[in-house]
Every structure is written in C-alpha cells, then in structure tokens.
Write a protein that binds this DNA or RNA. Structure first.
Lengths: 145, 145
DNA sequence: TATTGTTATACTCTATAACTATA
DNA sequence: TATAGTTATAGAGTATAACAATA
C-alpha cells in the first residue's frame, strides 16, 4: 500500500553509494579492531569458503597477482593463513586459513554492529525481497556461488 | 507470489559484500578511464554537491585530515578542483569543483555501465522498494543529506 | 587553549615489468 | 612457449605526531 515515491536511477545510485559506503566503513572498522586492513580482512573472508591459489585469490579480490604476495606475507606472519604446496602442480601455492584466521574473520563479521543492526530491522519477506533485488542489480555469480 | 526463499542475515551480508565489490569495481574502472584513483573520484563526487572545507571533506570521506592534503593537491594540479580562502575563518580553505572537475565526475558516473544496466532492470515499483529497504538498513543522513 | 590545514614519517595497497621455477 | 608466484620499483592511500597560523 505504500505509494511509490518515484525513485529515479540517479537517486538509487546515490543511495547505493551511501549504503555500500556505510557497509564498507563498518567492515573496515571491524577489521581495524583486529589490527587488519580491509584488504587483509577481505582476503580472510574469501578464504573462509576454502583454500585458494594465489592467482585465484588475486582474481577474486580484483587486484594484480603481485599484490597478493605482500598481503599473504603479512597474514602468514600473523599466523592467520599459511601457504601449502599444491600436489598436482608444483608451481601453485594454496593459501589456507588457520584456525586463528577463522576465528579472526568470524570475529570481524560478528562485530559489524551497524550493518547487522540495520539488517535486523527487516522481516523474512523483506530480507528475501532485498536479496532478490540486489541479486538482480549486481547479477553476480554465473557460477553456483 | 514468489515464495520467500528464507534468506538469513548471513546470506544478506554476503550479498552486500559481493554487491559492494561489483559497485566499487565499476566505479574504480570508470575513474581509471579518467586516470583518477577511487579516492580522487570519490572526492569529486562529494564536491559535486557543493564546496567543502578540507576538514569536512576528510570527515565525509572517513579518512584523516592529513590525507586530504595530498588528494586535493593532485586534483588541483590536474585543474579539477581549486582551494579558496574562506571569508569568515582565515584558517579554513574551501575546496571547489572547477567546470572541468564537474565534467569529469559526470563522465565517470555516466560510464558506470554495469551498475546502470543492473538498475535499468528494475521497474518503478522495484526501485522504490529497493530504495526504501536500503534506507531502512543503512539509516543514513540524520542531516538533510 | 582549541582548531585548521600542512608537513614529516612509516606502512600498506596498487600496477608494471622482469625474474624463477615449473608446465 | 606459457603459466604461477615472486621481486623490484614507483606512485598513491592511510594514520600518527608535530607544527604554524588563526580563532
């Protein structure tokens, strides 16, 4: 029953910018609490789904492969990840989350209070609607996810 | 009529992360086309609404005031912004977008094809719904905007 | 005294190019 | 020859601390 206040694409772009900026700020602050940069935390986040080769990691993070060396170096020095030789291809190194790395990224996610509080205001139907709309707009994951 | 596929907060957080990556990647690529970094383009974007003091700019961009000096230095060297003395307070410098700076940020926004294409798939009601939901979650701008 | 903007410093991120060790 | 990861390099972003000018 709520009328449609006639939102144009420009307004939506602006709101997306603000909303995603808020999300990023929340994530960055939560990462800083663990003395990690946003890039380091994002790397842990990607590895939360499972090990990944350096090259694949760079692809997912949308940065040059040479950057990953330094980022993984610092995470490894902190004991949050470790490099493992790949059995099949001796050129490849798989990066694996250590138990402490797992705890750290989980802690970061759990302390994104602004975002979780905002999401908590949505009921089940609203969550499904938001999920469907964002999926449409950013048409991600041609793969299974 | 579409059932609610039971989206939990974690899935929504994950989708927000993916959406942020897509939006930010689109923005960064559009900025790079103009040979600008994301931070520089974001600065132009903020100034598009009107002049701002260095301090206020740093606050909006959520970075330390000392960073703004270098960012504005580079934008000024390119002729995209200029510093102006504040009439009321001689400590303050207002940063103003030049006409070329205006054209540049408008061009960047216009070339965010992935995002605009995604938004174009939404009809008026869906745009209004997405706007309302995002506003609820990220409850922004206690100020006028 | 407090604030604005700047400088100095150190660390991180980033891309490009060149290198190595594999394939 | 092609690819995975690294190194070297240079430019840019980032925060902390200290400073000059102004309030």
């Amino acid at each position: 029953m709520p009328g449609h206040p006639r939102v144009d694409t420009g307004q939506l772009m602006e709101l997306l910018s603000v909303s995603l900026g808020a999300y990023y700020g929340d994530f960055t602050a939560a990462a800083a609490d663990q003395r990690l940069t946003a890039s380091q935390a994002k790397t842990l986040s990607v590895l939360r789904r499972g090990p990944a080769a350096m090259r694949a990691l760079a692809g997912t993070l949308a940065c040059d492969a040479s950057n990953m060396t330094g980022i993984v170096d610092r995470l490894e020095k902190r004991g949050l990840v470790r490099r493992e030789a790949s059995p099949g291809d001796r050129r490849v190194k798989n990066v694996v989350l250590t138990p402490e790395g797992e705890r750290t990224i989980d802690a970061i996610r759990a302390s994104m209070h602004a975002t979780t509080a905002g999401l908590a205001t949505l009921d089940a139907e609203e969550r499904a609607t938001l999920h469907a709309l964002l999926s449409r707009v950013f048409a991600p994951t041609p793969e299974g996810d």
